[in-house]
């Protein structure tokens, strides 16, 4: 006659999960949970810089629209994948790059390209508006969904076309007498996208000399 395994089972169940709870949850929190900014000793520049108001609000739009499901925000190291060769960054990203993010959106899927440094790679706001309104205008063949709902199509006022109206040609142009203007959410989202830059020189992730000179 053997004993019931009840208590042993119960202890085993609790102890096994406790081990990784300590190792993979508490331990990283201890190691990385209070990382701060780094001040460059030569230039006194501070990395990573905190995000300005409009861009910070844009991060919430980025979260709410679920951009993370198709776009990563992480640049892999030099000898791993082709992120650097594709020009997605001048160095790999490290833990410190993410300390200001309310929700860290590293992403796990590259249906679209990485956006870690999109603000550096494409700083033209007009391009971003056109691309969001309909990606085919800037990137024919893209499978990104059009985000026309972030824009308002309205009649052109007596004062003429608004300064912020999108320049759209051919099939993408609105009907005559109407114009497409970004809503507040589109403005915030583009401010966020243009703020995405993680290429400051960090001791744990230096930008290579010749790269920096470019």
């Amino acid at each position: 006659m053997t004993m019931s395994y009840g208590p042993l089972l119960f202890l085993g169940i609790l102890l096994t999960l406790a081990s990784s709870w300590v190792g993979l949850v508490l331990m990283p929190h201890r190691q990385l949970g209070s990382l701060g900014q780094h001040t460059d000793p030569d230039t006194a520049a501070i990395f990573p810089a905190a995000r300005a108001g409009e861009a910070q609000q844009g991060a919430e739009i980025y979260r709410s629209l679920g951009c993370v499901y198709c776009h990563t925000q992480q640049v892999r190291p030099e000898d791993y994948g082709s992120d650097l060769e594709r020009g997605w960054g001048r160095r790999r990203t490290v833990s410190r790059d993410y300390i200001h993010d309310r929700t860290v959106m590293l992403g796990t899927m590259r249906t679209g390209p990485d956006l870690t440094n999109i603000g550096e790679r494409q700083s033209d706001a007009a391009w971003h508006y056109r691309h969001l309104y309909n990606p085919q205008t800037t990137s024919p063949g893209s499978i990104m969904p059009p985000h026309a709902f972030l824009f308002e199509t309205r009649a052109i006022g007596p004062a003429g076309r608004s300064t912020n109206a999108l320049v759209l040609e051919g099939a993408f142009a609105p009907p005559a007498g109407r114009e497409v203007v970004p809503t507040r959410r589109a403005v915030q989202l583009v401010a966020y996208l243009r703020s995405l830059k993680s290429s400051g020189d960090l001791p744990e992730a230096p930008v290579k000399k010749e790269e920096a000179a470019r």
Partner: peptide, 19 residues
């Protein structure tokens, strides 16, 4: 607790997320 109520800082979120 660690991701929704009192979000932890930076990439610790990613660790908790995938754990």
């Amino acid at each position: 607790v660690m991701l929704l109520l009192e979000p932890v800082r930076g990439v610790v979120q990613a660790a908790v997320n995938w754990w």
